[in-house]
Amino acid sequence: MQDSDILLSDLDGHGILRLTLNDARRRNALSEGMLSRLGVALSDVGANRAVRVVVLAANGPAFCAGHDLKELTAGRTAPDGGRAYFAHIMALCSGVMQAIVTCPKPVIAEVTGIATAAGCQLVASCDLAIAASTAQFSTPGVHIGLFCSTPMVALSRNVANKHAMEMLLTGDMTPAARAAEIGLVNRAVAPEALTDATMEMARKIAAKSSLTLATGKRAFYEQREMTLAAAYDHASAVMVENMLARDAAEGIGAFIAKRAPQWQDC
């Protein structure tokens, strides 16, 4: 397989872009090549008006097994023992996770198989996630002497502290049903229904105003880091600007007139 084939891209007529991890041989590991391609794809999405929603999926039995440990180990042969290379990979990975959050389009993870370490981080970084009932999640770094510190950032922003610490300290596998209970994923569905359930949600969201979705997504993540008073001040300012947008006037007018809105994404 060529490196260019490890991430597949397909845009349908509803504006839903499926980015599919396609390196099953390496369990869709977040190799340097995979991270680079994900970063470029997410950057392109932001400027592409044809894309309304992104679905992040995977081919093979694993959604994503995290970093490529063989690749990282090879980096130890450098004169500095790998320090510069490790820093490069962690920065690259952190950039991809933040690009998901800052992407103006909603990103939905469609999870099959296992999602471990940075793969679990990838799921937690997405705005929404639907998992097959057979999927499993873990942050198993403690088993190999490497605490999952960067996955911890996304994990701890999705589940309660004690649930996050249980996953981080034990490294145990969390079944999909339990992942849904603690908020790591939105829901777990039968494996044969996974793509249909994901695409149904994606189409529902894609039918909304892209301007409204981008405004709301940005405000959601911005206010989350603020104090209560600052969050309300910020959200109020966002609401004022949103009310002045053409799509808000159209949406409210359509609701009052009992007709379908005609979005122009402005």
Rank of each mutant, 00 (worst) to 15 (best):
Q223M: 15
T73A: 13
Q223N: 00
A219L: 08
I144N: 13
K208Y: 14
R178W: 05
P191R: 02
L92Y: 01
A135N: 00
G60V: 08
A132F: 06
E192F: 04
M167Q: 12
Q136K: 15
L56S: 10
T227V: 02
R178Y: 07
C120S: 09
G113M: 10
L8K: 13
S9Q: 12
F147G: 01
H163C: 13
V238Q: 13
Y221W: 15
R18I: 06
S94R: 14
A164W: 11
V185G: 07
R25I: 04
F86C: 02
G82R: 04
I144S: 14
A249E: 11
H67I: 07
A177F: 03
I89W: 04
D3W: 07
Q98C: 09
K105Y: 02
V153L: 15
L8E: 13
T116C: 09
A257W: 02
A176V: 10
M239C: 12
N186H: 08
L30Y: 06
L244R: 15
A235G: 01
T174P: 02
N242C: 12
L92A: 12
L11M: 03
G253E: 04
A91Y: 04
V107D: 07
L21S: 06
L38M: 12
N59K: 09
A254N: 03
S9A: 15
H88G: 00
L19Y: 05
A237F: 01
P151E: 07
A245Y: 00
A180S: 13
S209W: 03
N161V: 09
I205W: 00
Y85Q: 05
A260T: 09
R83D: 09
V111N: 05
A91D: 14
M201Q: 12
M152K: 11
A65P: 00
I130N: 06
V96P: 10
G145P: 09
A47P: 01
I205Q: 01
G171N: 04
T195Y: 07
P79T: 01
A160H: 10
G119I: 04
Y85T: 03
P191I: 03
A190T: 08
C148F: 00
E192L: 10
V159E: 07
G60L: 06
V54A: 11
S31V: 09
G75S: 09
L228N: 05
E250Q: 05
D265K: 02
H163Q: 14
E241V: 05
G82M: 07
T116R: 10
I252T: 14
G113E: 08
Q98Y: 05
S43D: 15
A248T: 15
F86W: 08
T112V: 15
L194W: 02
N242I: 06
F86L: 15
T116I: 13
A129C: 07
L228R: 13
